[in-house]
Amino acid sequence: MGAWGTAISSNDTHADIYGEFFDLYNEGLNVAEISKKLIVANQEIIDDSDDCNNFWFALAKAQWECKQLDKDIFDRVKKIIETDADLETWRKLDADEKDIKKRKIVLEKFLADLQTERPKPKSRKKKIIRQPVFEKGDCLTFKLVNGNYSGAVVLEAVKDTEYGYNLIASTRINQPAKPTKKDFENAEVLLLNYASWDNKQNVSWYLPLRHKAVAHLIEKVDNMDVELNYDRNTSMLGGVGDFDIWFIEVANKQFESEQTKEKPTSRKSINEFTRNKSKWKFW
């Protein structure tokens, strides 16, 4: 779910769906057409009981802001809130009861807002072109709670778009000394097996919504060659909006888990994500 707070908009799914909605809205598409496109394109999220509520909340909020809230969408959101289905999801994900109480207040206010009439629809905006915060091949390092350095490699930088995505791969670097370019070139990709993860590779598209708040935690130490190209539009890799949660905190949790649990049995080198295999030589 990738939540960083109890607000309706404080999670990765909401950020992605709401952002995609207004990308299309600002391109001139009508609300009904946009909604249909998003529903068709996001069936995996809709079928995910842990995350589907965030999809419907984002869609309802966007439609409401355009003064075109669909009755079926409203009824779906109303049922989710009035039956406490969303709160039960938070409990299932081990959320703190204090946060659940805050979430309940937020949901009730959100439902009340949806039942009010906006004075006028949100205006369409001219698209702003942004650049990604990292360059392709950047070797990024950050401190772990154990005092060691870890790191990640930027596999792609999508330029001249509204958000400026980077594709980032976490590594298994976990060492006292600040990593060098060679350390990154020889690194393995971080696979996750803590909690319920099953050897999941921690490689995601990074949408820098809150990057200014965490930029001081990250240092670029060098830049390495990345021969492969990645397309955000056709990629099956998911997106995240918080570097501190999805790269730093996840690394902390994985390495902490390995103190009492075997590390993943699978291995993936960073070379598998950076080098063109057709150029590899074996001797």
Rank of each mutant, 00 (worst) to 15 (best):
K126W: 07
F273T: 12
S49A: 13
E44T: 10
T141E: 11
V154M: 02
Y25C: 11
T274L: 10
S269I: 07
R124T: 13
Q43K: 14
K200H: 12
K71W: 02
S170E: 07
W64H: 15
V40A: 13
G2D: 15
A7M: 11
Y165D: 10
Y165C: 02
T116W: 04
W64M: 01
I34T: 12
Y149W: 15
R103N: 10
D86H: 09
N202D: 11
D183M: 09
L167P: 01
L114N: 10
G238T: 08
K182H: 09
R172E: 15
S170N: 15
E135A: 14
I81L: 01
N42G: 09
Y25K: 10
R76Y: 03
I39F: 05
I173R: 03
L29N: 12
L69P: 03
A169L: 01
K126E: 15
I100Y: 02
A95T: 04
M224D: 01
A169T: 03
D183P: 03
Y163A: 06
D86M: 06
E249P: 00
K136M: 11
F247E: 12
L38M: 11
L24I: 09
T116I: 08
A60G: 03
S269K: 10
L191V: 11
L155N: 05
D242H: 10
Y163F: 13
D231T: 07
E188V: 02
E249M: 06
K122G: 06
F255D: 04
Q115H: 10
Q63L: 04
D231L: 05
T89P: 02
A60M: 03
I245W: 04
F282N: 10
L114R: 09
R91T: 04
P208C: 03
F247L: 11
E227Q: 13
F282D: 12
G164L: 05
V250S: 04
S235K: 04
I46R: 05
